[in-house]
Design a protein around this nucleic acid. Structure first.
Length: 375
DNA sequence: GAACCTTTTCCTGCTT
DNA sequence: TAAGCAGGAAAAGGTT
């Protein structure tokens, strides 16, 4: 009896997972629902990347393998399907030789390397607050030692603000992961693209390391591109108790180029010409005029006058950040943008009332007549 | 490619 | 004291 073509099985399995919402922000198969919707784009919907490989379900394993098959353009038709029933626990107990025997000499080493990286990444993501603090400091020192040009764009300050919040680590991994990924991005400093690097961070909770040994001839890296840390010089980092903060320059930090980006920190590519109608005030207006989408975020104080109030200011800011693919959006930043509307008379000041704003004469689409016409 | 526009980010000082 | 407000400054990135 012949096995069905693996690639079609994988494709169908993926499709099924998408259809059941696994890749759409819905917790499934015991996967802890620690990742908010706002981050759903960051990983292209591959939820297994956020979970402990030990806890991967068979579906996660299948999706993970499928990604590697597609990415490396391997012929999957000759592979055994026995691993279809394999979950993360079983996978984690396989050695490199076993994986090579199971998945073949092409795919096996790729998968083994990727799995080790997933394990390390998961451990890093789940550091406790003191460990994270210490790790930030280590990375800070590391970047100082490198004299890394992107240092100024790294959001260590944000980590400091929320360092004691466990949910920060789980829900918003900007700090740790962007530090890791941007810090490793040394392209341009190694013109020969020679890869022979080691990066290690030791904390009270253990030691985490990344080693990369490949050459330009062997391709970009033997490891999974989603963790493909570009080369750095070998170094050792010593820890000290010190405040974890780097002063950032004013202004918006530059986006990390897609080329040097990796899965966790990547954002979906925006259309070069984003459609109009995505302004902040329009976003606010739309929340107000669609009560079904409002969910107690904002309310009208005086509908006729266009006076409204934020009820859940941070939640609205998060939604705005989600829309703009900016997970670090806060009400403070949003409100600064709102204040710019005063000059343009899109909004008017409402003195003495916190979280209260008023639409100005240059705004539109919120008046009862207008809304009535459009409905 | 430049100019302009709209945020985004950081900051200091003030008010509630 | 914390949270919010006000607005300057600088920068990114999209639009024209």
């Amino acid at each position: 009896m012949s096995s069905p073509c693996l690639s079609s099985v994988l494709t169908n399995a993926n499709l099924a997972m998408y259809q059941t919402g696994l890749s759409d922000g819905v917790s499934a198969g015991g996967l802890p629902s620690i990742i908010p919707l706002q981050n759903s784009n960051l990983n292209g919907g591959h939820w297994y990347r956020q979970a402990n490989p030990e806890n991967w379900t068979a579906e996660h394993v299948l999706e993970w393998i499928s990604n590697h098959v597609e990415r490396n353009q391997l012929d999957a038709s000759t592979l055994s399907l026995t691993y279809c029933a394999m979950d993360g626990h079983a996978l984690c107990h396989m050695g490199q030789d076993q994986m090579t025997a199971t998945f073949g000499p092409d795919l096996g080493p790729h998968l083994y390397q990727s799995l080790q990286e997933h394990k390390t990444k998961y451990e890093l993501q789940n550091l406790s607050a003191p460990e994270l603090n210490e790790t930030c400091q280590l990375l800070d020192n590391f970047l100082d030692n490198l004299n890394f040009p992107l240092l100024s764009t790294i959001k260590i300050g944000q980590a400091e603000e929320t360092i004691n919040k466990k949910e920060f680590i789980l829900q918003d991994d900007d700090c740790l992961m962007s530090l890791s990924l941007e810090a490793m991005d040394c392209t341009g400093y190694h013109s020969d693209n020679q890869c022979d690097s080691e990066f290690s961070v030791s904390t009270n909770g253990g030691m985490f390391s990344y080693m990369n040994q490949s050459s330009p001839e062997s391709g970009s890296s033997e490891s999974d591109p989603e963790f493909s840390y570009p080369p750095i010089s070998k170094m050792h980092i010593k820890t000290e108790d010190k405040e974890c903060r780097v002063k950032r320059p004013r202004g918006r930090p530059p986006k990390v180029s897609r080329e040097h980006n990796s899965g966790l920190y990547s954002i979906s590519k925006k259309n070069k010409h984003a459609p109009r109608g995505t302004h902040l005030w329009e976003f606010i207006r739309d929340i107000l005029i669609h009560p079904e989408k409002n969910q107690g975020l904002m309310k009208w104080e005086d509908r006729r006058e266009g006076v409204f109030k934020f009820l859940k200011s941070e939640a609205v800011a998060q939604m705005w950040g989600q829309k703009k693919k900016n997970s670090s959006m806060t009400y403070e930043k949003l409100s600064r943008a709102m204040r710019y509307y005063y000059k343009r008379e899109i909004l008017e000041r409402v003195d003495g009332r916190r979280l209260v704003y008023k639409f100005g004469k240059n705004s539109s689409g919120w008046k009862i007549e207008e809304v009535g016409m459009s409905l």
